[in-house]
Design a protein around this nucleic acid. Structure first.
Lengths: 340, 340
DNA sequence: ACTGGCACTCGCTACAGTCGAGTGCCAGCA
DNA sequence: TGCTGGCACTCGACTGTAGCGAGTGCCAGT
């Protein structure tokens, strides 16, 4: 009992029409709009099979059919090709990103661009610190017992943190500390940094030790464990399109999930560039997002990913188009980062 | 023709009950729940007057009364006292803010705290650069023709920006540049900086001039004109409470406005600390927000404001409680900043 | 100036009837 | 065996009617 070609064609037609009209699709309308070469009755038989297999369902007894999550999955995996971007879209990307001045700017523009192109909620992860390396560390004295630690990563990210020293410390010592940490840490990947920071404490001369100990704690704590991962959001207003039909009438759970950075990171923060992940409805592990789909991919200067980006929308979304856009934007951002 | 005390009491009762129940208030229900000492008929007469004056209205002919924006305004100005915070709320503030490590962290925690306490959308402006002064400027060479400029403000804000030099520049020159800009600019308020930056170019020795010119452009452009103002948002999910009754059924315009940083800044970024601004419905200049109210205030280490914060919710909101919370949080954040 | 009484308005809910899109099934045909 | 046309059936969406009840405005009386 496989699904023959025609049944697949029927499924594809249902998905495409439903995505476009947002209304359940009946057999008659289907044969009218697509050249299937068979009668409505035949299509009905096929539909019965597709329903039995769980690819489509009827909202109520005498209504048309609607794809299930499983149906979308099959559609994405086997029935659709990634749409090439239109020239207008390509131009939009370039125009929008042109003149970005720093990492913050790039991330902000990217997330708005994605939201605008896909007309959905966009999420962009800042380049992960764990996958960055240290370009420079700066220590700025605030008072005799306080330093501002500033770390600049090769991805352009800048992190700052206040360091509360156990005892006052002269300016020369600050310079020594600065020199030491830079010598040892510049160029290392942050994920490999902890042992080096450890070593730094052990090797430091006695009178610098207390300060260095505090400093290392802060380094480890903030730069590696803590809020190292950040995200930017845009396009939440797009959730309201399609009336209240999508998301079964309540935006609440969606908005809640979007505010949980940890949740969003798990969703978009794991792919390599060039692979695109599509999570449809239930496949999603987060309960709040069972009515939503997520299309995400990684981005980075080369072929390794420094962060993820993606969009979130109703399960009823234009997958081929969205996938194409997400990929294109990720590629473009990667190139932009490579220029630094 | 003024409103006597009883009419004001009736208005107050209507506002309070409507905020609590979200249903139009009838004359009978009013006398039952409040000790007004008169009969429903009398209250009806008062209501007729209040309606004529534009403080309340009837959603439809035979329904109870609902406050108008003007009614809320009168209520806020003359009929309510700011509720003192409950001890539980005070404790919540301290618990929530305890252990904030840097400015980013403070802002993030603040905005979430506000959202949680008021159960509304919270907005916090990062300390305005225009009202900060320069604590330190750092130049980090990225390549021979590229520098990363990092500015640290006394409010703890850190801004970075890439500088593309017109010609390669040796390391000593970078050090000279760094020394020069720091000598001239540290300690100055950013709003007063432009002429100083100008002077810097003019006074610099010939061989540093090209680099200094570029650097000054970037300084002026980014740190003063550009995206100097940022905001943080939280609690958008709170917009969905109260079903779809608030915001006349569509969150769309609200969500759109929230994403426009410029719009939000205009809303919350102008008050002094200790003054609280309440904008009710129509008073708001932004069309998208005509169904919403905004309560905002300034915050800062002393008595001058370095930024604004506030919440946005339906016109039907608990003004006394919200005002109290916004003030308390602003005061707390001010103290926190003063410690740096 | 306040009150009780009364007629009136009008949104809400329930119920019945109609319409039509869409289905499942079946007998017939290639 | 697989496709088709025909047909009875289902059920949601829409329409119209009727009753209810909360709430009002007005008025005469205290």
């Amino acid at each position: 009992m496989g699904l023959d070609d025609r049944k697949l064609a029927v499924l594809r037609a249902i998905v495409e029409d439903y995505v476009a009209t947002q209304e359940p699709i009946g057999s008659k309308a289907l044969v009218e709009r697509h050249q299937l070469g068979v009668s409505p009755a035949t299509v009905r038989n096929d539909m019965a099979v597709l329903e039995e297999e769980g690819y489509i369902r009827q909202p109520h007894t005498s209504a048309g059919r609607v794809p299930t999550d499983r149906g979308y999955r099959l559609f994405v995996d086997r029935l659709s090709r990634v749409k090439p971007l239109s020239p207008a879209e390509r131009r939009a990307i370039e125009r929008f990103m042109f003149g970005a001045v720093d990492l913050d700017d790039v991330v902000h523009r990217t997330v708005r661009l994605l939201a605008q192109l896909t007309r959905q909620v966009a999420v962009v992860q800042y380049p992960s610190l764990a996958r960055s390396s240290v370009r420079h560390l700066e220590l700025v004295p605030i008072s005799t017992t306080r330093l501002m630690l500033v770390m600049i990563a090769d991805t352009g990210r800048v992190e700052q943190r206040l360091v509360e020293l156990p005892a006052p410390i002269p300016a020369e010592d600050v310079m020594d500390l600065r020199r030491l940490v830079n010598e040892k840490l510049v160029g290392t990947r942050l994920s490999e940094t902890p042992p080096l920071v450890q070593a730094l404490v052990e090797e430091s001369v006695p009178h610098l030790r207390p300060a260095m100990t505090t400093l290392s704690t802060v380094l480890l704590e903030t730069l590696i464990e803590r809020h190292e991962e950040r995200i930017a959001l845009a396009g939440t207003a797009n959730l309201t399109r399609g009336g209240l039909l999508d998301f079964q009438g309540s935006l609440r759970p969606i908005l809640e999930a979007l505010e949980e950075e940890v949740v969003m990171l798990k969703l978009i923060g794991e792919a390599e560039p060039s692979t695109t992940r599509v999570l449809i409805g239930d496949e999603n592990e987060i309960d709040n997002l069972r009515a939503a789909s997520v299309v995400s991919t990684g981005y980075g200067p080369g072929s390794t990913s420094v962060g993820g980006l993606g969009v979130l929308g109703p399960t009823r979304m234009d997958y081929p188009g969205t996938i194409a856009t997400v990929r294109a934007v990720a590629r473009y951002v990667g190139e932009l980062l490579a220029q630094n």
